[in-house]
Nucleic acid binder design. Structure first.
Lengths: 206, 206
DNA sequence: TGCTGATTTGACCAATTGGTCAATGTCACG
DNA sequence: CGTGACATTGACCAATTGGTCAAATCAGCA
């Protein structure tokens, strides 16, 4: 689908196009985005886009594939040998950092899922699901050993996704509701979520 | 913007159109939706749509406005005189029920917010923000009285929104990850979220 | 320098977009 | 059974869509 970049120029332009595509797709979704818009943001002509990518969909698929590579890293990093509460709060912190540092990627993903994930079914079932099941059973193990309080591990993971990605995906709402406190939203969120995780999971309920 | 329906036929057709619009807008966002698609789902001709609504945007705006009316009811119902933990778990339960019973409405809202809420800024700052501030101070009052454990009330509300709406907005992801457990997702979520809220808020940390 | 392949684009295309309008059909009510 | 308002639509429009292509330009190398 995506030709391997061979020259300097190819690498540079493909990155420019993907960055522009990320801008536009994350803001309007696949169907709402147009090649003209992407070309304009990229500073290239439309035929030039199609010299590097065979179609609009190819740009989108390339973005989603590259995204999934790094998107799940925080969950992969969950260490079965680590201290349970520390591991899970660290996971939340990493996810929150991703929402802060890569909001466009989060929104691209959210758009795709909300619209039924038509171009991601296989990657979700083939890669995401096994990873989630694996980490859920690690968490279940911790719970069985009494190292953290019991709660459905899958829904625990879903809640962590929901709460952390919310700060990227619903940014416009936060901005409207928080007013002047908007600038501190990530610091406040980190404190709040750490408290939440600790009370939910710490054996003492601390 | 939207003419008041005068006849039976008008009322019926406007509802048919709005329902079709909800289908299409919630799946593709504003720019990704087309009048032809809405007309097809509604079972009407395109010029007939435009006989009842002056433009594509008018349908969208009407949907959003009607939605906001009922979307915030669960939060409005939060009773300052009630028992704090019971009130907040009831709020979570009502929000979760809305995700279960009105997933299209949730996705319509999510699409609009993700795309920067270009058509909702004023309703967010004029209606949502005052309501959130009011309820946040109710919650803060409960915390100050020691009736629930302390935590940032605004971020508590955000987390409740995130976790409950996640079950509507990211349905495709849940389906892929949960597999056969997918059918029980709402029952499981209710149990999980009740546990979470209780541990987070109950003075004993129960 | 000249050559060759990589890069860029103006012009173009068929299909689709949101929207208009005149003509037609239908319904309620006197 | 008229008749006037309500309802419906086929035909059409200009603009935009994703995508093509031949011609022009550029970069690097012998």
């Amino acid at each position: 689908m995506t030709p391997r970049p061979r020259t300097r120029i190819q690498r540079k332009n493909m990155n420019v196009i993907l960055d522009a595509g990320l801008d536009v797709f994350s803001q309007h979704g696949f169907r709402g985005a147009t090649l003209d818009q992407i070309a304009q943001v990229a500073g290239l002509s439309k035929p030039n886009l199609l010299y590097y990518f065979p179609s609009k969909e190819a740009i989108h698929v390339t973005l989603l594939t590259r995204l999934m590579d790094t998107w799940l890293d925080p969950l992969r990093d969950l260490d079965p040998e680590g201290e349970p509460v520390a591991e899970l709060t660290a996971y939340v912190r990493r996810k929150l950092e991703m929402s802060r540092d890569f909001p466009r990627e989060s929104r691209l993903f959210a758009n795709e899922i909300i619209q039924g994930a038509p171009r991601m079914q296989e990657v979700l079932t083939d890669h995401l699901r096994p990873l989630v099941d694996e980490k859920a059973s690690v968490i279940a193990g911790w719970m069985a050993e009494g190292r953290i309080r019991a709660a459905d591990p899958h829904h625990l993971i879903f809640s962590i996704w929901a709460m952390t990605q919310h700060y990227a995906d619903f940014d416009a709402q936060l901005c409207a509701v928080l007013g002047p406190r908007y600038d501190a939203r990530f610091e406040e969120a980190e404190v709040f979520l750490e408290t939440l995780m600790r009370r939910l999971l710490s054996p003492g309920g601390a």
